[in-house]
Amino acid sequence: MKKGVSIILLLILLWGVVAALSEMPFGKAKLEVAGHYTDYGKEDTGAANIVTSVVLGYRGFDTLGEVTVLFLACIGLAVVLSTLKKQGCGARQTPSLILNTGFRFLFPLILLFGTYVFMHGHLSPGGGFQGGAVIASGFVLMYLSVPKIKRLNHFVSTLFESVGGLIFLVIGLIGLKLGSQYFLNNFLPNGEFNTLLSAGIIPVIYIAIGFKVGSELSKIIDVLLEESE
């Protein structure tokens, strides 16, 4: 009975979703907003990567929200885990030679790649979030391979987190005061298209986000590991 009812409900839902999907114009340039982004994205924001021009230009306020969500997730995790009692679990295996050597070789490269990704967010694919996540995955590798880990410096990571977020916000507020009086307004010159120093405030914000996301994601892994040690 219960199963029957839920299957019927799911079928009704599926029918509606299919109806909605069939209304969507796949492969046609009907989407007005997206069309505007691809046509005018370059002039409006000065970023060569259209995705970045949407993420930090047109919808920069959403990105501020996403950055806050990540900050919040990190704080929330720390709140929940700090209340739990520490409990022991199985001993760690000592990492193998391959892992150790690979780590030494790859770790600097991963950090460099992550930095490249977030610095060139306005030119090539990627950006602050992706670059930060790449850096954090480098730290995951570090935790796997170094047996007696020197922990992440919480002072520094807290500083990066807060300062990164604050830079984003302060840039937004400066935009409110300067020029055309809009929050997150691009008040820096757009510069020469498709060079590192272009697209106004976008690279500055992406560097701040890159540091922030990198330190936050690494801190999440660090806090989780600390509790399980």
């Binding site: 970045t52 996540a133 590991l225």
Partner: peptide, 22 residues
């Protein structure tokens, strides 16, 4: 490629790490 990069680093690396720790 933007989504691919996020998916690779978060979905494949970090989420797996969190699951393994759990």
């Amino acid at each position: 490629p933007d989504v691919a990069m996020a998916e690779a680093s978060i979905g494949a690396a970090l989420v797996t790490a969190v699951f393994v720790i759990a």
